[in-house]
């Protein structure tokens, strides 16, 4: 049985969150990029407002470029890639070098994308590497609790993004149920009030305000 410290628990959780943030955000940016080709433009100001990040971009093109690749911005996707790899690196002996290599490759693909004239091609590699990472992670990590902590982190991030961006509201309940199922397979201690709100919404269909639900998801773990 693998030995996991409390600090590793934290990193496993954030590894899940960052890998999901990168994955979902890149998929979104691919949609945005594509819409720019037809000249239909995009409401990047609304995006920033919903995400709660400063809107410092001049145009849709500027947003696409800098939200993806600005290394100086803590909100950019490249910073999330950095954080994803950083959390993975300190977990090498838990997740294995083989698994870590996929995060390293995603990081390298992101670097290549930032230099490319067709960044979407390289960004596809980032997505592929993250998917490969997930498969390898599942295979390599011996302890079930560790695996579930990272998956829980990923689910929290996914639901958080869905609620923030108001995307796929019809799937929220389903994702919340998945989160609850996963949560009980970890050693994590959830916040009782946040857990009750999520349980009421997911299992009993109680109507909960979107912001209140988002707040409960974000506060579910004090990690």
């Amino acid at each position: 049985m693998d030995t996991i410290t409390l600090s590793k628990q934290n990193r496993l959780f954030w590894l899940g969150r960052y890998s999901e943030r990168v994955h979902t955000s890149i998929q979104l940016m691919m949609e945005f990029y594509d819409s720019l080709l037809d000249g239909s433009g995009m409401d990047y100001q609304a995006f920033c407002r919903k995400m709660g990040i400063p809107c410092v971009y001049d145009s849709g093109e500027d947003f696409c470029r800098r939200y993806l690749f600005d290394e100086e911005s803590q909100y950019s996707i490249v910073s999330a890639v950095e954080a994803m790899l950083g959390n993975g690196m300190v977990l090498r002996e838990t997740i294995s070098s083989q698994t870590l290599a996929y995060l390293q490759m995603a990081h390298s693909a992101m670097e290549m994308a930032s230099r490319s004239e067709s960044p979407m091609v390289e960004l596809q590699w980032v997505l592929d590497d993250i998917m490969a990472f997930r498969g390898s992670f599942d295979d390599a990590v011996e302890e079930e609790s560790a695996r579930n902590i990272t998956k829980t982190g990923g689910m929290v991030e996914r639901i958080s993004l869905m609620l923030r961006l108001e995307r796929h509201p019809e799937r929220v309940e389903h994702e919340l149920r998945k989160l609850l199922n996963r949560l009980y397979k970890t050693d994590l201690t959830p916040d009782p009030a946040a857990l009750k709100t999520i349980t009421d919404r997911a299992l009993d269909g109680v109507a909960v305000d979107r912001i209140a639900l988002l707040s409960s998801v974000e506060c579910l773990f004090h990690i």
Binding site: T3, T5, R92, E93, S97
Partner: peptide
């Protein structure tokens, strides 16, 4: 981190 992994020790 690599030597921890290779030797089976906890980092």
């Amino acid at each position: 981190s690599y030597l921890a992994e290779q030797s089976g020790a906890a980092l």
